[in-house]
Design a protein around this nucleic acid. Structure first.
Lengths: 178, 178, 178, 178
DNA sequence: TATGAATGAGTTTTCATTCAT
DNA sequence: CATGAATGAAAACTCATTCAT
């Protein structure tokens, strides 16, 4: 957890640019895309990428961490159903992250961040069950599993709005009447 | 659709060996695993792999095609719920294929084979609806979407039998009461 | 010079087919073209090519030998100028051979055949000088050199009939007034 | 025509080294020589060659371009006869290049550079005709054709100084009395 | 003898990572 | 700190040649 000295303003800007570029590049081309391509997209030299993220896996982990934090933040503002819907809707933009969450060969461990997301979803689940919107026997693990599954699914095969809605409808019904 | 002359017996044997090896290797190490490793596992020289599959992508496509055919065959013997359950249970063993089905950077198109799977699942759906096991408004696209999603989800290390069962239970309930 | 037993009729037919195919293939794609491609063009399996020509170089040497014999034969029927003109006109069809004559990396020695061609051209030269069509000081080596040079030149850059004629005209003038 | 930013000094040095090495290697062993050998000779890692020339063909094209520029420069300093003589004399050292100019399987297009050479030779021709050293009806295309032909011819091992001189003498006479 | 599958050394090419500028 | 050239191990792919069918 050592964070080192705070970065200079330009360094911080570069770090953010690289993360944005990496998210975009890996979303488009998968994690096979080269680090050079990320640098190019970020408008930065390759050395700069490696200064900020000593290995490619570090870069991937950083993307993940950032998205997970975003998800936690969104979970704090929405109910369970809205959260699912929202995340699925934008899953395609986060391809790499969802892939990583699902473990695509690259081996990255972020127990903290994942744990925090699980807690956030847990709170949503409790609330939904308290409101009677989700059946009592439903537990967090399967909700997380469904969440990840549907994110994965949504990445691919061009789920349009319709298909997203219909697919989520089945899951929501399942949560309600289980 | 031209298939060329039938392969010699030994060639056919090698082709199958290579596909088996590739399925295993890519399941264990992802599609990043090298073609050499596949050759080694198949007990064959690298040139033999490339004679059968001129490109790594060709090899991946061939694995896919074979798995899809297997799924179609299994769909013919099971009902919708059993099919889901069965496939999810062994998804981890087919990691690479499920990844490919979902499009993991490698660019492979097998509309035919995918189409046939969709038809097979369509028949299962009709039967299940006729039997009253699935609600009338449910349509094929969302069933396929759920199917793929859950396969992806099931790849994760964490899904033990319990979690598989509980997750599918939610989906099955959703299909029933939608 | 051991020639072995005479070939069976079908074997002889195959040998010829392979040579024709090789000449065509190497003319189109250079000597880098693969032996497989030659086999394919000859409508023969790769093993058959290697039975007739134990190495690729043997195949190339055989093409050469055949073309040189052809040239000798043509030299016997034409005068020096007609011979030059004729050979240049069809040089493109013999790309590989001319390349080989010029020594393109592949190392092949056919002193006999080349010697016989040189003799044939020598006879043409004597005749032409006797007729006063070629200046007395001109010697065989430079005639051969010009011959090969122009063949090489004609292979490339799409010499049309016009250009062939004009280029040869300069050389013929040079031979006359040297 | 965009050339990108100017190369760093060390990169430029390496680029030149690689070109020199490639010219030497390909002159000795033909274009079949491996890129590794070029790297070794240049005292550079293989990756460096590919950073500068992403493809072997790119490397070959670059050699060509450089030689053509050299020829243009030499054409600017010499008269037509001296130019021919000079180039023929050193043709053997440029084996690969002359082969490429003539198109030896490798597929490279450099219309610009070739065009500039043609212009330069055109100027020499005009001057020679103005001086009465070349007959009026002679045109540029056949001069270029002769030039390339003789370069090709000169590649052969056998052309010693004598033979070069005698062969060029015939051509020069032809240009004079055509 | 013909066939065509298998071999495996050799080549090209890619890319994460290091390091001189 | 940023840059971008260099590195070199590893991967993809080719093809002359051998050998089982």
């Amino acid at each position: 957890m050592l964070e080192g000295p705070p970065l200079r303003a330009d360094a911080q800007r570069n770090r953010a640019r690289i993360l944005d570029a990496a998210e975009a590049v890996f979303a488009e081309a998968g994690t096979r895309a080269s680090t050079e391509e990320v640098a190019r997209r970020a408008g930065v030299a390759i050395g700069t990428v490696f200064r900020h993220f000593p290995t490619k896996d570090d870069l991937l982990a950083a993307i993940m961490k950032r998205l997970l934090a975003q998800l936690v933040e969104e979970a704090g503002r929405l109910d369970l159903f809205a959260f699912f819907t929202h995340v699925v809707a934008q899953a395609a933009a986060k391809k790499a992250v969802v892939d990583l969450l699902a473990g695509s060969g690259v081996d990255i461990r972020l127990p903290d961040a994942v744990g925090r997301l699980e807690e956030a979803v847990g709170r949503l689940l409790e609330a939904a069950q308290a409101a009677g919107d989700v059946a009592a026997p439903v537990r967090l693990p399967e909700v997380m599993a469904l969440f990840l599954s549907v994110c994965q699914g949504a990445l691919h095969a061009g789920w349009d709005n319709q298909l997203q809605a219909r697919t989520l409808a089945v899951i929501f019904a399942g949560l309600r009447c289980d």
